[in-house]
Simulated scan of single mutants.
Amino acid sequence: MKEILTQINGVLIRENFVGNLPYNPNLKILLKGKRKAGILSEVIFWKQVHANKFHHIDFDRQRIIGNYIVDFYVKRLGLVVEIDGWSHHQKQIYDGVRQKYLESLGLNVFRVSDFDVKYNLDVVMRDLENFIIEHYA
């Protein structure tokens, strides 16, 4: 039986740790720049989840998985959070391939728009709670 990680709205959330994820060390050089870029929606989201503020869940920012850098990752859930900005409108095929790859590793991907993080943050956080309940309860 999987260990209980937390509770959300009275619902027990169980761990789903996915070990031995592929890692491309050549991408490490890009991490610092991506973190310093300070993309507003990522900063806003990070302020909501860093330091276990969101239901005592530990989020990593800018994590390398395979040949990709994901926006946020929850190791103990195997959860990727992607914030899609304006550039993603032209990259739907790329995003689809990327998401299928991440899911093939046993990860779940929660996608949210840059706009919603900036202007509907309460809804985003509630949708994230519901996503976690749906996939990890």
Results as ranks from 00 to 15, higher is better:
2 K>Y: 07
2 K>W: 03
6 T>G: 03
7 Q>D: 05
8 I>Y: 05
10 G>P: 10
10 G>T: 00
12 L>V: 08
13 I>D: 00
16 N>L: 01
16 N>H: 15
17 F>W: 09
20 N>H: 12
21 L>Y: 06
25 P>N: 03
25 P>M: 09
25 P>A: 02
27 L>G: 10
28 K>L: 13
30 L>T: 07
30 L>R: 13
31 L>K: 14
31 L>M: 12
32 K>L: 15
32 K>Q: 14
32 K>R: 14
33 G>R: 14
34 K>I: 06
36 K>F: 13
38 G>D: 10
40 L>G: 01
40 L>V: 15
40 L>Y: 15
41 S>T: 08
42 E>G: 11
43 V>H: 10
46 W>V: 00
48 Q>D: 06
50 H>C: 14
50 H>M: 13
51 A>T: 12
53 K>A: 14
54 F>Q: 03
55 H>E: 11
55 H>W: 04
57 I>H: 04
57 I>S: 07
58 D>F: 06
60 D>S: 14
62 Q>I: 05
62 Q>N: 08
64 I>F: 07
64 I>S: 00
64 I>E: 02
64 I>K: 00
66 G>D: 06
66 G>Q: 04
67 N>F: 03
67 N>E: 15
67 N>M: 06
70 V>M: 10
70 V>A: 03
70 V>D: 09
70 V>N: 03
70 V>K: 05
70 V>E: 07
72 F>M: 08
73 Y>A: 10
74 V>K: 01
74 V>R: 01
75 K>C: 07
76 R>Q: 13
76 R>A: 04
76 R>V: 00
78 G>P: 00
79 L>H: 00
79 L>Y: 00
79 L>Q: 02
80 V>E: 04
82 E>F: 09
83 I>R: 03
86 W>G: 00
86 W>L: 15
87 S>R: 12
88 H>G: 12
89 H>I: 05
89 H>V: 07
90 Q>W: 06
91 K>T: 04
94 Y>I: 11
94 Y>D: 13
95 D>A: 01
95 D>H: 09
96 G>F: 01
100 K>N: 14
101 Y>D: 01
101 Y>N: 08
103 E>L: 06
103 E>F: 04
103 E>D: 01
104 S>M: 04
104 S>I: 07
105 L>Q: 08
106 G>Y: 02
107 L>G: 04
107 L>Q: 05
109 V>T: 11
109 V>M: 06
110 F>V: 04
114 D>S: 12
114 D>K: 12
117 V>R: 01
119 Y>K: 07
123 V>K: 15
125 M>H: 05
126 R>I: 05
127 D>S: 09
127 D>P: 04
130 N>L: 09
131 F>T: 05
131 F>R: 02
132 I>W: 01
133 I>N: 09
133 I>G: 02
134 E>T: 09
134 E>D: 10
136 Y>C: 00
